[in-house]
């Protein structure tokens, strides 16, 4: 299944939690690494938590695209569902 309805609230909450931000610090385009001090493991953690909590599979090659909230939502919109 593609073209998902994306649960923005959940995605925001995951990112804010992993990057240890106040909710208003995260904007659609604020950059995880440059603006929020994340490292490469932070991006993997975001990918991993989203996969788990939203039941989707994000291809590993999309990892490099996950630079900000907007980009995460973009990748999620076309992500495959996890196999049951």
């Amino acid at each position: 299944m593609t073209a998902n309805t994306v649960d923005v609230t959940t995605v925001r909450a995951i990112i804010v939690d992993i990057l240890e931000l106040e909710d208003d610090e995260l904007t659609a385009t604020s950059l995880f690494i440059e603006d929020h001090g994340a490292d490469s493991l932070g991006a993997i953690e975001i990918l991993s938590r989203i996969e788990k909590e939203l039941g989707v599979v994000i291809p590993q090659e999309d990892l490099v695209k996950l630079v900000n909230l907007e980009a995460v939502l973009g990748v999620l919109a076309t992500a495959e569902r996890r196999q049951p």
């Binding site: 993997i44 953690e45 991993s48 996969e51």
Partner: peptide
């Protein structure tokens, strides 16, 4: 659910 659901 997946065996790679380990904490990064």
């Amino acid at each position: 659910d997946s065996p790679i659901d380990v904490p990064p």
